[in-house]
């Protein structure tokens, strides 16, 4: 009885106070999507997580906003299915490994393919250069150049340099996301 009551209470609260939003996390394999999501949710960073096969779903709470994060696998076989999970989301997080120049070019191609999809028009994108704790990591401006972000003009595009491991700029990411909830 009491659980029913508390649920009802939460429901009433949520009607007035809270809101929900959907975001997707994309990027090549081993960019750090799953790790970032764990850190966003307030968990500890671990470096030995297994590759995501398909997708996994996680809810993150920030203040009165519940963010439903769809963490998608980055291996080539799953990239064709990114679009299905991006339709209608509030924001897309595109994560690149800023310490691995070899993959950045592929990441740029995937990114360009993604933003050219008509079904995803206008959805704000946040590009994150992860692993900035590593000495050879590119800084934020280099990433903007390499990813050719300046050429995207039909939507809001932001770019941060972060480190999921050292929790650098993670709060900024959360704040950016919350600002996109409506």
């Amino acid at each position: 009885m009491s659980s029913w009551f508390s649920r009802f209470y939460e429901y009433i609260l949520s009607l007035f106070w809270s809101s929900e939003m959907d975001i997707t996390l994309l990027g090549l394999q081993n960019a750090g999507k799953t790790s970032l999501l764990r850190v966003l949710g307030g968990g500890e960073f671990t470096s030995d997580s297994i590759p995501t096969i398909g997708f996994s779903m996680k809810r993150v709470r920030k203040g009165r906003v519940t963010i439903k994060c769809w963490d998608l696998g980055g291996q080539p076989r799953f990239r064709s299915m990114w679009e299905r999970y991006c339709k209608g989301v509030n924001a897309i997080l595109f994560i690149v490994d800023s310490a691995d120049p070899a993959t950045l070019q592929i990441a740029r191609m995937e990114f360009e393919a993604l933003v050219s999809k008509p079904s995803l028009e206008g959805i704000p994108v946040l590009v994150l250069g992860n692993k900035n704790d590593l000495p050879e990591a590119y800084d934020v401006d280099s990433i903007i150049d390499i990813m050719n972000l300046k050429s995207v003009d039909d939507r809001e595009v932001s770019c941060y340099s972060i480190s999921a491991k050292e929790s650098v700029n993670v709060d900024a990411v959360l704040n950016w996301l919350v600002s996109k909830s409506n």
Partner: peptide, 12 residues
Amino acid sequence: DDVIMVTSSIMK
């Protein structure tokens, strides 16, 4: 097709 997509979710 592509039912492999749910693997990680199920594993959880």
